[in-house]
């Protein structure tokens, strides 16, 4: 059987990669993709913990289901915002969104 720490290290790596995507990418959609990677890392954590530490109750399962649900809602609103802004600006580059300074 695979040890628990393997899953946790995998999740940590995925989380760090997602974080890099969030912080380094210029395009808003690419940033959203980084966020999705981070959320997936969390889901691996939740289910690995469920499998190895708290098998009796399905807390990890339920938590992961809610995370996925929220991710879907979040992506829907996010994409709507990107499209609305793209209509005004012809860009969704985070650095070009600079109507406000100070």
């Amino acid at each position: 059987m695979v040890p628990l720490t393997w899953y946790l290290v995998l999740a940590a790596a995925l989380f760090a990669i997602g974080m890099f995507g969030v912080l380094a990418r210029k395009n808003a959609v690419a940033v959203l993709m980084g966020v999705e990677l981070m959320l997936n890392a969390v889901n691996i954590n939740l289910l690995a913990f469920w499998r190895y530490t708290a098998l009796g109750e399905l807390v990890g399962h339920a938590f992961a289901v809610f995370v996925i649900t929220v991710a879907a809602a979040e992506a829907a609103v996010g994409v709507a915002l990107f499209i609305a802004v793209y209509r005004q600006r012809d860009t969704v580059n985070v650095e070009e969104l600079d109507a406000m300074k100070g």
Partner: peptide
């Protein structure tokens, strides 16, 4: 979610 993201990319095509 992927479908949404792909749509977003296609609809904001200059990027």
């Amino acid at each position: 979610i992927s479908t949404l993201i792909i749509f977003a990319i296609m609809l904001t095509r200059r990027i």
